[in-house]
């Protein structure tokens, strides 16, 4: 990005109207990817001068234990629902989860999920990191996930969505293929980086379960209805040029007993519709790249 410039220069303006047609495999119109955030939040992390992760001095019991629900209860609930309807996961991974709870990571591997990095912990923020520090979390991520899953990570969702001005250039230098941190589009887009290339794949804040439940205060059923509406519109518009819908999840939210049932109905609707390509993030980026 262009440092200290009003326009960070992340990408070119490309109007939605009149774009080149993107075609997904088997003529599907909307590539749907599900992004479970498999996270670890530290109970007593060092405090970053720009952001404190917890509302109370350690331990913040509700904040910590709510997130721990993912790793004891709701991960498997969420994953089973996804598997039942044919949705692979593309995991936004706090890579230290490979050390803390390898059982959760192994479950995703066994289901054929793709892993990308969401930083070391979701309680460590990248703001103000030196280049050497930032390189170390990228290299740590690559090695940790390679050792735990056999996969070379291809994507990045910044830990707690915290960046520096050099993050995207570094990702491209380390031959990452995509970033999930830019929310400017409903299609895969090219990102301007210093070397190599980098794609932005649509992730989503708006239909992220966290936004659904804690920004828009939806019930489980209202959130499920939102997913169906989002899908219907993108599948229709995808006839012109293939669209992407991401469903970003946190098991401790979507896997609560009052939400998982309606969520399963939404997944079932999308899977049965016929216009959805149920894919992993890397597959979507590859299919897009092949058409450039």
């Amino acid at each position: 990005m262009q440092q200290n410039s009003a326009d960070p220069g992340l990408y070119d303006y490309v109007p939605y109207r009149g774009r080149k047609k993107i075609v997904w495999p088997e003529g599907k119109t909307c590539a749907v990817w599900v992004a479970p955030n498999l996270e670890y939040y530290e109970i007593d992390p060092p405090i970053h001068p720009k952001r404190n992760p917890w509302p109370h001095p350690a331990p913040s019991v509700v904040g910590y234990s709510h997130r721990d629900h993912s790793n004891r209860v709701s991960h498997w609930r969420m994953a089973d629902v996804m598997s039942r309807h044919g949705f692979p996961g593309s995991v936004s991974l706090s890579v230290a989860l490979c050390q803390h709870h390898p059982e959760v990571v192994a479950d995703g591997v066994a289901r054929g999920w793709e892993f990308f990095s969401h930083g070391i912990y979701n309680t460590r923020y990248s703001y103000d990191m030196t280049e050497a520090q930032e390189r170390s979390i990228i290299e740590d991520s690559i090695k940790t996930v390679q050792d735990a899953t056999g996969q070379r990570i291809r994507g990045w969702l910044a830990p707690a969505l915290t960046h520096t001005t050099r993050t995207l250039d570094l990702l491209a230098e380390y031959e990452f293929d995509y970033t999930c941190d830019l929310y400017h589009d409903d299609q895969v887009q090219e990102v301007k980086v210093a070397s190599n290339g980098l794609a932005s794949i649509p992730y989503s804040l708006e239909v992220n379960d966290h936004y659904g439940f804690f920004v828009y205060n939806m019930s489980g059923r209202e959130y499920a209805d939102t997913l169906v509406r989002q899908y219907e519109r993108l599948a229709k518009e995808g006839e012109q040029s293939g669209t992407v819908m991401c469903i970003p999840l946190h098991a401790y939210l979507i896997g609560q007993p009052h939400r998982i049932g309606p969520f399963e109905e939404a997944l079932e609707h999308i899977a049965k519709d016929g216009r959805a390509w149920l894919a992993r993030s890397g597959d979507i980026v590859d299919a897009w790249r092949a058409q450039q």
Binding site: E42, I43, D44, P46, H48, P49, P59, N71, R72, V73, W76, R77, A96, Q99, H100, H101, P102, E103, I120, Y121, R124, D128, M129, T130, Q133, S136, I137
Partner: peptide
């Protein structure tokens, strides 16, 4: 721009199980 001490990317409790000793991990299922 301020910079972070290098201790910010050290992880003394990065280990199997929890980063505390209050209870053990277990999968309900």
């Amino acid at each position: 721009m301020s910079t972070l001490p290098d201790s910010y990317k050290q992880y003394p409790m990065r280990r199997e199980g929890y980063d505390h000793d209050l209870y053990e991990w277990s999968n309900i299922h």
